[in-house]
Design a protein around this nucleic acid. Structure first.
Length: 464
RNA sequence: GGUCCCUUCGUCUAUCGGUUAGGACACAUGGUUUUCAUCCAUGAAAGAGGGGUUCGAUUCCCCUAGGGACCGCCA
């Protein structure tokens, strides 16, 4: 049995969206599960629309989410000669032919078909004509001689057997008038050249598959296995496209979603293994299979993304969490100063408990990142006479403390509550506001301990 | 319009002919709590409709309805 080889083959004509990432993930996991190889092929034969910017974005996206590929990227445009050669070979063998129809002529036919509401299919006009009839002023395209009789059955690994009448597939163009190869030709040739054994892609490719199989057959190549996965839909139930907002990886990373969480989410979107929800990387590889892929399209659910992210925040190793946080802050917020690093690391155990995203952690650690505390006007009103008095007493009391911990602080707070005839809020709230600039946030003891005695005294002294 | 595909709680899904149709997220209610959260408990919530096949269908088949994809000298 040949070693499994899969590939992800995006065209760099726009930002990669998470549907594409999921396709890449499935291909990658499948090959890893089988101990095979996974490749990235950049389909950049459309020179007009392909942009390096998008190519880099694709590469970075895969890197971010942890999908690695063999060798360097396979650049399709570099193989165009091979594609052209195959077209010529098919031509020589009589399995393809030159079509001299002008584009106007084709357009006319399409228009007419539309008016009559009948399906347009190229009429195979030049299929059996000889070149001697050819008009001099037209550069021909090369069309593949598709099967006309009978049916084809695609044994799809996800969708089961798909049967189609051969005559519904037209004699598609494989070489343009300018001599450049088209998608179906290039993809077929490259899949063969790269030794692909399994092609896992969106089911919007199903018709292409019938065409590509025919090219493989005509060239006597081994035909890979196919798995067409349902597309991801938007909340409105339409195919997810590059133009939808919240569709690229960046849209998620910038709100503080972690790569492993998104990977887990994408894996479970349209795929399942019993009732299991959380899959770490090893488990993803271990359990992934094609049988678990559902047949119906699934919708994106941001709540689920948050929830899985939250789970990862609370359960991964704190050193890992910190490095995700560090990268996140540096990329999207502000660099965490060295001085704050230690404090945040020490505080992660409580910071993470109130966070769904890295952004939440960042928001709650601002008081550790910045020494300057900003208090808004509303909150300032809460610091009244009594509050200032309490703060003063508190400062005096902790000043005497040699051991600064929850155990030593608790009695002080209790005493203040009693002496001032108030409740916990009466003491905790002003302290929290003065120390962090916010009414909300971590528990007051957590704030106190992570700041440390000196810093607490310093911040409180600025209020009096 | 043609071809092909799909259809279980709002969402992601489990079930591979016999279940009180299960789980997770979201939602609601209650509890814990030091604000915001967390956490715990409880609750509401689904087999599109109609025919078959069968002792028995969510599960197999057919029809209808709804949804989707494709129909480029783009990929």
């Amino acid at each position: 049995m040949k070693k499994v080889a899969t590939r992800f083959a995006p065209s760099p004509t726009g930002p990669l969206h998470i549907g594409g990432v999921r396709t890449a993930l499935f291909n990658w996991l499948y090959s890893k599960n089988k101990g095979g190889k996974f490749y990235l092929r950049i389909e950049d034969t459309d020179k007009e629309r392909s942009k390096d910017k998008f190519k880099n974005q694709i590469i970075n996206s895969l890197k971010w989410i942890g999908i690695n590929y063999e060798d360097s990227e396979y650049i399709q445009s570099k193989k165009m000669d091979d594609h052209v050669n195959v077209a010529n070979e098919l031509l020589e063998k009589g399995l393809a032919y030159k079509c001299y129809c002008s584009s106007n002529e084709i357009e006319e036919q399409k228009k007419r078909a539309k008016q009559k509401k009948i399906p347009y299919i190229y009429n195979r006009k030049w299929r059996n004509k000889s070149d001697s009839d050819a008009p001099k002023d037209i550069d021909p395209v090369i069309r593949f001689k598709s099967k006309i009789e009978g049916k084809s059955i695609l044994k799809d690994l996800v969708q089961g057997n798909i049967e189609i009448e051969n005559n519904t597939i037209e004699d598609f163009v494989i070489l343009r008038a300018d001599g450049s190869p088209t998608y179906n030709l290039s993809a077929s040739v490259d899949d063969h050249l790269m030794g692909m054994t399994h092609i896992i892609r969106g089911d919007d490719h199903k018709i292409n598959t019938f065409k590509q199989i025919q090219i493989h057959e005509a060239m006597n190549w081994k035909i890979p296995s196919f798995a067409h996965i349902p597309l991801i839909h938007t909340a409105e139930g339409k195919k997810l496209s590059k133009r939808d907002n919240a569709s690229t990886l960046d849209d998620y990373s910038k709100i503080g979603i972690m790569p492993n969480a998104l990977r887990n989410y994408l894996l479970r979107l349209g795929w399942s293994y019993k009732d299991k929800e959380i899959f770490n990387l090893d488990e993803s590889i271990k359990y992934f299979n094609l049988e678990g892929i559902g047949k119906s399209p699934s919708k994106l659910d941001i709540n689920r993304i948050y929830s899985i992210n939250e789970h990862y925040i609370k359960n991964i190793d704190e050193n890992d969490l910190f490095s995700f946080l560090k990268t996140y802050c540096e990329t999207f917020k502000e660099k965490i100063p060295d001085a704050a690093e230690k404090k945040i690391k020490k505080s992660l155990h409580f910071l993470k408990n109130k966070a769904k995203t890295l952004e939440d952690i960042y928001e709650n650690s601002k008081f550790l990142i910045n020494d300057k505390i900003q208090i808004n006007r509303e909150d300032k009103k809460l610091i009244d006479e009594t509050a200032i008095k309490i703060i003063k007493f508190f400062s005096d009391d902790i000043n005497k403390l040699s051991d600064f911990s929850r155990e030593t602080l608790q009695p002080i707070i209790d005493k203040l509550i009693k002496n001032n005839n108030t409740n916990f809020k009466g003491v905790g709230q002003p302290l929290r506001i003065c120390l962090t600039g916010s009414k909300f946030g971590p528990g007051i003891f957590d704030i106190l301990c992570s700041l440390g005695k000196e810093e607490v005294l310093k911040r409180l002294s600025q209020i009096r």
